[in-house]
Computed example of a mutant assay.
Amino acid sequence: MIKEIIVVEGKDDTAAIKRAVEADTIETNGSAIGEEVLRKIALANERRGIIIFTDPDHAGERIRKIVAEHAPGCKHAFLPQELTIYKGDIGIENASPEAIREALEHLRTETAATEGEVTWNDMMEAGLVVDANAAARRLEMGKTLGIGYANGKQFFKRCTSFQITKAEFLAARHAMERKLEESE
């Protein structure tokens, strides 16, 4: 049984989690998260800790941000979009039990955003911002680092708050560049 309570968007996500692992969940019921749900999440975080495991889409990222603001020090699980798509629908409920278990084995813990090893200049040199292919490059880097896809500013914040080391960043950059070269 997973000690932490997993925060998901809805009942279909809960069902998918329970097919993969033994765990308790809290459902946000979409992006209009009520105060009662946020209080329940804060209490769960204090007592057992939480893992935020939302869909890899705009709404899921919005929910992740809201929940993380109310639950400092929480853990995050990420899945890339291609592992969550079924008939055009993106959602954790579409992921295989194996993909869910894998994501839960590679959690990232958020810490107070302080100055990290990765700099904005590193982001620019890697082509993650101010580059015609920045979005695709962030997508690949996010998969490798296990921090999901985000816009440039949010990606930089994740590198800082998840304490991505310079070595991790450079290794992910080299892997991303190899993968992008192979696809050309």
Rank of each mutant, 00 (worst) to 15 (best):
Ile66Thr: 14
Ala42Pro: 05
Arg62Trp: 08
Asp122Arg: 01
Glu105Ala: 14
Ser31Gln: 09
Ala71Gln: 05
Leu128Lys: 05
Met123His: 07
Gly142Thr: 03
Gly152Asp: 12
Thr54Ile: 04
Ala77Leu: 02
Ala150Ile: 02
Ile41Phe: 10
Ala112Leu: 07
Ile85Pro: 13
Met141Thr: 02
Ile147Asp: 06
Leu104Met: 10
Gly49Lys: 10
Trp120Asp: 05
Thr54Ser: 13
Phe78Met: 14
Asn133Ile: 02
Glu93Gly: 05
Phe78Glu: 00
Ala112Asn: 10
Gly148Lys: 07
Thr84His: 01
Glu36Phe: 11
Glu46Gln: 15
Asn94Lys: 13
Ser161Lys: 11
Lys75Leu: 12
Ile147Lys: 08
Ala113Asp: 10
Leu43Ile: 02
Ile50Cys: 07
Glu46Leu: 13
Ile33Leu: 03
Glu46Ser: 15
Pro80Asn: 06
Ile100Phe: 02
Asn133Lys: 15
Leu83Asp: 11
Asp122Gly: 11
Lys65Arg: 14
Pro72Val: 07
Ala68Cys: 12
Cys159Glu: 00
Ala135Glu: 12
Gln81Arg: 15
Ile85Gln: 11
Leu139Met: 05
Ile33Trp: 04
Ile92Pro: 08
Gly142Glu: 00
Ile50Arg: 11
Ser161Leu: 13
Lys75Gly: 04
Asp89Glu: 14
Thr54Ala: 07
Ala77Pro: 01
Leu145Phe: 04
Phe53Val: 08
His76Leu: 15
Leu128Ser: 06
Asn45Met: 04
His58Pro: 02
Gly60His: 07
His58Asp: 14
Asp57Arg: 12
Arg137Phe: 04
Glu82Met: 11
Glu115Gln: 11
Val118Leu: 02
Thr114Ser: 14
Arg158Ala: 14
Met124Tyr: 09
Cys74Trp: 02
Trp120Gly: 10
Lys153Pro: 00
Asp55Leu: 13
Val129Glu: 06
Ala126Thr: 02
Arg138Trp: 04
Leu79Glu: 01
Lys143Pro: 02
Ala59Val: 06
His58Tyr: 15
Thr54Gln: 03
Met124His: 07
Arg48Cys: 08
Lys153Val: 12
Gly116Pro: 10
Phe155Asp: 12
Arg47Leu: 10
Lys65Leu: 12
Lys153Cys: 04
Thr109Leu: 13
Gln81Tyr: 10
Glu98Val: 11
Ile52Phe: 09
Ser96Ile: 06
Cys159Ala: 06
His106Gln: 12
Ile147Pro: 06
